[in-house]
Design a protein around this nucleic acid. Structure first.
Lengths: 167, 167
DNA sequence: CCATGATAATTTACGATTCAAATATTAGAG
DNA sequence: CTCTAATATTTGAATCGTAAATTATCATGG
């Protein structure tokens, strides 16, 4: 694929170094994400007594004031339907969201934020955004733009790789 | 903090756009990581019948042939001690790792790969590395280097942010 | 109308994860 | 030596997450 001048760098060696480079890159990316995510989880818990998945679900609903079906939440949150059922149950118990019957299709509910849920979410979202700005604050504007562009490349490619099956 | 020439871009507006930029960046990063991680989990499960956490634990042990204490595993894997206990239990049941008594400190164990565990791990690691190369293959060599450097900046900063406590 | 297949959500069983509390051992001050 | 504090691990309860099976409803061809 690529030309190389060094005598040592035959296909074999190059492949290996490419491999460890990609692997290290992935491990670093994973570490960064986990680091930030752990901070967010911890702060949501100590300051608002909420978990990240519940916050995420509310966040989806806030963007869709007309409400969402369980299956739509599942797709958007990239988790299974069973999981959404559980998280929704708890938010309903806490009075932050409601399941409304859907007259068009009695198999499906419409899940919506309650007024209380919307009010509380707005407060949390404000803090959440500050935390993100703080945690990503080590990068300059330009670096963040570069980063965003690189992630777009990654997302497009990785998202296109077929699920499994192949060896 | 930064000067701006546009009349519209007062502090308020700029702050807001910086905020949503950082937020979008974070959401994209999270989505990418989850996408790749889900692929790896799925493939480890279908092709080797193992979970990602178990693979990770074995991976740590493979890098430390002399074995590791539970607490060291916990630190390196960035998970709680209780979690390590559970994952180790299962790997012990499967005969892939052993808990050895530590004569120096009877509170602590030394966890090691068994010969069988090491053999199996090597096979899995080989495939794992291929998958990573495949999934990150959308980026050029240069892009991967840039990405790695940007992650270093992020890791340093985010790792330095104090845990919680502050408003 | 009705049989069949697709779709929406839930349930069940299990693994992973966290936090907080409990247990066991070590280390150090007096 | 003994009390106390620190360290290493485990346990238990709660949440999150997946996959597979189940239930209820819809939609369509005959």
């Amino acid at each position: 694929m690529k030309k190389t001048k060094q005598a040592q760098s035959d296909t074999e060696t190059r492949a290996t170094s490419e491999h460890t480079q990609a692997l290290r890159l992935w491990l670093r990316m994973l570490a960064c994400t986990n680091l930030i995510e752990a901070q967010i989880r911890s702060r949501l818990r100590t300051q608002f007594g909420i978990t990240l998945p519940r916050f995420d679900l509310m966040s989806q609903l806030e963007r869709s004031p007309e409400g969402l079906k369980m299956g739509e939440l599942s797709k958007r949150m990239m988790v299974t339907g069973g999981n959404v059922t559980g998280i929704t149950d708890q938010l309903v118990t806490e009075g932050l969201v409601v399941r409304e019957d859907n007259p068009k299709d009695r198999r499906a509910y419409i899940v919506k934020l309650t007024p209380e849920g919307r009010k509380i979410f707005k407060k949390m979202a404000e803090s959440h955004e500050k935390w993100i700005v703080e945690l990503l604050g080590g990068m300059s504007e330009k670096e963040r733009q570069q980063f965003h562009a690189l992630l777009a490349v990654l997302k497009t490619h990785a998202g296109g790789v077929r699920p499994d099956q192949d060896r």
